[in-house]
Design a protein around this nucleic acid. Sequence first.
DNA 1: CATCGCTATATCGAACCGATATAATCATCC
DNA 2: GGATGATTATATCGGTTCGATATAGCGATG
Lengths: 208, 208
Amino acid sequence: MLDMAILGLLEERDLHGYEIRRQLRDHLGLLANVSFGSIYPALTRLEKSGAVVATEGGSTGSDPGTTAAAPPTGSLSGELAVLRARRHTGTRARRGKKVYRITDAGRQLFGELLADASSADDARSFSLRLAFARHLAPQARLSLLERRRALLVQRQGESESARPDLDPYARSVVQHTADGVARDISWLDSLIASERAGLAGARIEPVR
Amino acid sequence: MLDMAILGLLEERDLHGYEIRRQLRDHLGLLANVSFGSIYPALTRLEKSGAVVATEGGSTGSDPGTTAAAPPTGSLSGELAVLRARRHTGTRARRGKKVYRITDAGRQLFGELLADASSADDARSFSLRLAFARHLAPQARLSLLERRRALLVQRQGESESARPDLDPYARSVVQHTADGVARDISWLDSLIASERAGLAGARIEPVR
DNA sequence: CATCGCTATATCGAACCGATATAATCATCC
DNA sequence: GGATGATTATATCGGTTCGATATAGCGATG
């Protein structure tokens, strides 16, 4: 799940770990407050699998590009980038800011993860998929939305609404959750509608 | 988090693992679709720490009830309980249905977990706490609600609403999430209001 | 009576979280 | 100018949780 998120962000631009977390927090809704204890291991394993490469963003003065997008490494400095290797020695070396770039293999992996129908059960990974939906074909997009909707409708049916045996607090939680599901469904309805409209001719972007 | 949930359910009545999962799923809102890979280890560690005791509920054919409440260890049984030890041998022993009962230590632990102000950051554990709020003192209940509200308001402030730079899909997700937060806040408002009303004299149960 | 589906327990590896340590950079105030 | 604190940044550790899978008894249906 995190892998998909990271790859999706890296499709846009090169990033380092800290920045990835920020984007996940700000962009992709507040629910995803991912911990560093997840991000760095994820980056390591993505690197090991060849989906991304780490370019030591030690900032070598040059590289004026990095425009807006890539993490701003101030300016003139860089010289000591390599010293990191000797970090444990007395020499104070600049801790390297590792900037990650997605590879072709990574782009392919992202495509697979995004399209994979299974494992979209939880709200988090659905939201994530939807946030990256522009990378999907219109058809895949539509079926993503419809699968999700079907799932929620099913759950709605399973829960006998408003059991009176629960105490007021528990009942309130259950009710609030149920309301949330209903709200999600109508949200999906509007997305599905505008998606269909988009399919039938002119592009109309999703409402809301 | 799971520990609190399990203890809370066991306060009500004795249960076995499978039943715990069902209650978590049905009662405490659909969000908590907890896996067995979490429940059984949790039960084991609670047992090891002395918060619960397992009473081998062997079920020998009887037990037509399954009556609502306690896990139906119907009646006369016990005989083959010990056979479980030889499970790997040829003898087919009934796989024991382990029924767990909360201890005094467990009840105390539950009280501590429930009251502990920290670690209520995520929606799941907040909902869980609230669902068990009847075990809290009115004051603690109120401050639980207020802390949660403050947290959500803060998040609401931090997210610059509706950033236009996002593509429509991501924007829709962010917007929907933000709406959800607003909805949560007004839910909390109504809970807080009725809680205050309850404090000031007569008992009025929470609305909704 | 065979097979299917539900109840039930259990375990394994991988993912994920929260806390913590470490460091460099930057702002600010004295 | 230099102490102090906030922010940016990487990393690791222990423990919890998840998802998949294996096992097995039991009731119903055909």
